[in-house]
Each structure stands twice: as C-alpha cells, then as structure tokens.
C-alpha cells in the first residue's frame, strides 16, 4: 500500500523536509536487540523504515551489511521471526511506513504469493527485491498487486530509458536511487545524481526519489535537498554501531544519536 508512504511524503513536502529512512537487518544482532533498535529508529523520528531479511549470500551488500546478515543468521533468525518482529513493531506504530528489502531466493523458496501475503499481514507496506531487475519482475509485481504491497525498484545511474519507463509505470512506493556503482557501504561516499538525470526521471513520474548507497552524513542530506530529491536511505552507517558496540544500551544510544542528527539535517535548508 502506498497510503502510509503517500501520507508521509505529503507531510514532508508540506514542511519542506526530506525523508530520512534508515535501513537495518531484521534480527541483527539478535531478535530482542533488533526489536529495540527498530523502535529506537522510530522514536528518533525516522520517516519510514527499510528492513532487510537476513540472507546467506547478500550479493549487493558491502562488508558492514554482510556482517549484519551473518550476525542475524548466527542467532538462527529465520524469515518467520523477521515477520514477528515487524508485527510487534506494527502493533506499536500504526502509522510508520515499513519497507522490506530482500533477496529473491527468500521470496522464491517461500513461494511468491505466500511471501507477499505473510508480509502484508505482518504490516509491511513495500517490498524491494534486490536481485530482481525490472525485466524479471512480472511474477513479483503480480503478487505485490494481489496483496496490496507497493513495489520499490532500484534506479542505478546506468539505467536505460526503456527500463526506467517500465519501472515508472508501476505504482511504486518510491524509487531507490543508487547514488553510484558498487555495493552498499559508507566506505565509498555517494555521488549526487546529475541534475539532468533527476529531471529525466521527474519528467515521467511523480514517485518520490530517495537516494541511497554511501549516504552517511548530514551534509549529504543537504546536498540531496539541493538536488531536489525527496529523501535518503542510510544502512551501513546505522548498522556499524551494532558492530562497534557490545552492549545493547550503547548500541541503542549511539544509533539514536545518529538518527537524531540525520533527521535534523532533513529539516535544514
């Protein structure tokens, strides 16, 4: 459903704010802590959530998110438990927009319809399947439509116009603009998309544009605002605190501080 996203993007536009969307892996570092981390993200004012289901072979992810996947799997967090975490979060936060970012095999093995149905009933609003490009996407889009889940696609800088148009014709929650080639991670900072590229996208769709891959600082949020983008997604820069700190309290405190800073930047001009 786009409803929660529509509401949040309308409100942000009205307030001249960008969306700050943190990404974390469900069950990282374990079930309990993950639940508290996600609640902390919401409490600090993030505008939507992007949540990953841990996968053994995260092809598009850099070292920080790879570790997150492995930590969760080491604690035997499975797909069903991930949906339980989302259910608990949804029960406490009826309005937050929740997106899933998954690898295809987790959807395929469970069964497309079954997976989208489980996602819907746990409270998910959108799903991005990282390794399903638009021309393989039809069965996934069919299940998404059937279960009222909004699709999300990545828009890389090298995308051809036909694929872009095909993606734009879907009722996406937002477009995940890939800032640069490469895997996820803050080691390689984002490059702001060229103005003409953003204009080209905006000429064919009103879907909000969120920038990800290497977005980790408040300065980049200001740059994104100048570039007429609608928000940013940060994953590795949030997750790194789970790696650095041992205690749950320290992890939550540092992540909260970071999210607060990032959210604050979205309000600046």
């Amino acid at each position: 459903m786009r409803n929660r996203y529509d509401e949040v993007f309308q409100r942000l536009k009205h307030n001249n704010e960008l969306a700050f969307v943190p990404f974390v892996t469900l069950g990282d570092p374990n079930y309990e802590t993950s639940l508290h981390i996600i609640q902390a993200l919401i409490d600090e004012g993030c505008d939507a959530l992007e949540l990953g289901i841990p996968f053994s072979d995260p092809l598009a992810d850099g070292p920080v998110i790879q570790q997150a996947n492995l930590r969760a799997l080491k604690h035997h967090v499975n797909t069903q438990q991930c949906f339980h975490i989302i259910e608990s979060i949804r029960a406490l936060n009826p309005n937050i927009a929740i997106g899933l970012l998954v690898y295809a095999n987790l959807v395929f093995k469970t069964g497309l319809d079954q997976f989208y149905q489980m996602a819907k009933s746990s409270g998910v609003d959108s799903i991005l399947v990282a390794d399903v490009p638009i021309h393989e996407a039809e069965p996934y889009l069919n299940s998404a439509n059937k279960h009222h889940i909004a699709p999300v696609f990545m828009i890389p800088p090298n995308i051809d116009f036909t694929s872009l148009e095909k993606i734009a014709s879907q009722q996406c929650a937002y477009f995940y603009l890939m800032s640069r080639p490469g895997v996820t991670g803050a080691e390689l900072a984002a490059t702001m998309p060229k103005q003409e590229f953003i204009e080209k996208i905006k000429s064919i769709t009103t879907t909000p544009l969120l920038l990800g891959f290497g977005v980790s600082t408040p300065t980049q949020i200001l740059e994104a605002k100048q570039a007429q983008l609608d928000g940013v997604i940060s994953g590795s820069s949030v997750i790194k605190y789970i790696d650095v700190f041992q205690s749950k309290a320290e992890i939550i405190e540092s992540i909260s501080y970071y999210v607060r800073q990032m959210k604050q930047a979205t309000r600046q001009n």
């Binding site: 490009p133 021309h135 393989e136 990545m154 890389p156 090298n158 036909t162 890939m178 080639p181």
Partner: peptide, 25 residues
C-alpha cells in the same frame, strides 16, 4: 533493453542481478 538470446533453459537460468548489472550483461 531486453536480451537478444532467450536467457532461460526451460524453467532455469534468467538474469537475477541488481538492476545496475543489466546493461552490463
């Protein structure tokens, strides 16, 4: 852009990669 040769052998094969690799492949 679409592949010129059928990427499938029966039910198997395809191109399950992040969108960024599609133009490259």
């Amino acid at each position: 852009m679409l592949p010129l040769i059928n990427p499938y052998f029966g039910d198997y094969g395809g191109m399950f990669v992040p969108q960024i690799l599609m133009p490259v492949l």
